[in-house]
Amino acid sequence: MQAWHALVGDGATGILWWQMSLRAVIVLVYGLAAIRLLGRRAFGRQSPLDIVIAIVIGSSLSRTLTGNAKLIDTLVATTVFLLLYWVLDHLAARCRGLGWVVKGRPIPLIEN
């Protein structure tokens, strides 16, 4: 465990430039994996749930990148958050009421 902290920093003290650079690589790989697993639509549809997801994930990953939060703890919490998103998204597709709360309702821009 000490070797891991020496490599990426512990988040409690300041981190060095190369530790932040290594964290950047880890966060980038994690972010790309999350997008690939959840699909591009999770970050591009812009329903209310998607907007919250983008803000929270961006905020939490930026904190771990700069050393203001522990790397592994934040990645685990973000993974739980993404799993909750996935469950909510699937439930919203099957339950009309939940779908309205989570996704909103479409507003037609042009008719006929």
Rank of each mutant, 00 (worst) to 15 (best):
A3V: 14
L7H: 04
V8G: 01
G9E: 10
G11F: 04
A12F: 04
A12D: 11
L16F: 05
W17Q: 11
M20L: 04
S21V: 00
R23F: 07
L28G: 10
V29M: 13
V29H: 01
Y30R: 01
Y30C: 02
G31Y: 10
L37Y: 10
L38Y: 06
R40C: 00
R40H: 08
A42E: 07
G44H: 09
G44E: 15
Q46R: 14
S47I: 02
V52N: 04
A54N: 15
I55V: 15
V56A: 14
V56E: 10
S59F: 11
S60D: 03
R63P: 00
T64H: 01
T64K: 02
L65I: 02
G67P: 01
N68S: 13
N68I: 00
K70F: 00
K70L: 05
I72H: 02
I72R: 01
T74S: 12
A77N: 08
A77Y: 05
A77H: 02
T78K: 08
T78W: 04
T79Q: 12
T79S: 15
V80C: 13
L82F: 14
L82V: 04
L83H: 07
L84C: 14
L84T: 07
V87D: 05
V87Q: 06
V87R: 05
L88W: 02
D89F: 10
A92L: 08
A93C: 03
A93N: 11
G97Y: 04
L98N: 05
L98E: 03
K103E: 13
G104A: 12
R105H: 10
R105Q: 12
P106G: 07
I107R: 13
L109S: 09
L109Y: 00
I110N: 04
I110M: 09
E111F: 03
N112R: 12
N112E: 07
